[in-house]
Amino acid sequence: MYHLNPKIRPFTLPALAAGFAGDLGGGEYVGLLHFQGIDTPVHADDARLEECRFTGVALETLRNARLLQCELQQIGAPSLNAAGAFLNDVRVTHSRIGSGDFAEAELDGVVFENCKFGWLNLRRAKVRDVVFRNCQFEEIDFGGQIQRVSFTDSRTSVLNCVGAQLRDVDLQGLDFAQIEGLEAMRGTQISTLQLSLLAEEMAGHLGIKIAT
């Protein structure tokens, strides 16, 4: 059951120099730069991005990239491929991500705030100490190792827990219309209202008939 809040480590970025699209590329080490207003889709596969800020940048691929103490603001990504990426102490705010593919990624100490997602794919990902505040989703795929995750003022049409390993996951601040994989919800905390909404589905899952 839910015991611990996500552990979010505060950080403050130092003074940053201006970054340019040419600084970003596959396998590059990039640090202490502020990238702003880049409309051309950014491909930064295998890059190491440390103490950077991205504002109004179009991101497309971050496969196997490492982001350490970075801030992402007003990011536009119709389809973001971040499979295998490592995000440690990262803040993502006021961003729109259509398809966010974090399959086999590792997220540790990440905050998403005022973000809108189509599909958030966390299948086979390792997710620890992550907070979602005022976020909207069409579908969340929790099919990975999810630990100490919380939601506040957030909503999703579908919450897919099939194949998930959940521990200390607080769903009380997440409105959901449909849940897949009820059997994998062990390790979550829900509200009494959410329980009442799930009662019929849970009964059907357990083979319990409800008299009318």
Rank of each mutant, 00 (worst) to 15 (best):
V162D: 11
N160Y: 04
E138F: 03
D153K: 12
R148Y: 00
N160T: 10
G163W: 05
G144S: 10
D170A: 14
T152W: 00
G163N: 13
L166A: 04
Q172P: 02
G163T: 13
Q147P: 00
Q165P: 00
R167W: 03
D175M: 02
Q145F: 05
T152I: 06
I146Q: 06
R148M: 12
S154H: 10
I146Y: 00
L166D: 04
F176W: 09
S150E: 14
L174D: 09
Q145S: 15
R155H: 09
G173I: 01
Q165H: 09
N134A: 09
V130M: 03
F142G: 02
L174W: 03
D170E: 14
T156W: 01
V158K: 03
C161T: 12
S154V: 08
D175A: 13
C161F: 06
Q145I: 12
T152H: 07
F132N: 06
V131P: 01
T156G: 04
S150H: 03
D168R: 06
V158R: 09
T152A: 12
V158P: 05
D168H: 14
V158D: 04
E139L: 03
R155E: 11
Q145D: 14
V169H: 04
V158W: 01
T152K: 06
Q145H: 10
S157A: 13
V149E: 05
R148D: 11
Q165S: 14
D175Y: 03
R155K: 15
R167T: 10
V169N: 06
F176Q: 03
D175G: 05
Q165K: 12
R148N: 15
E138M: 03
R148Q: 14
R155Y: 01
F142V: 09
R167A: 11
G173A: 04
Q165I: 12
G144N: 08
Q136G: 10
Q147V: 14
Q136D: 07
L174R: 06
R167I: 01
C135D: 07
S154A: 14
V162T: 15
C161H: 04
G163I: 13
S150F: 00
D170M: 12
R148C: 13
D153V: 07
G144V: 08
S157W: 01
Q172K: 15
Q145T: 15
L159E: 03
N134C: 07
V169F: 01
V131M: 13
V131I: 15
T152Q: 07
R133T: 13
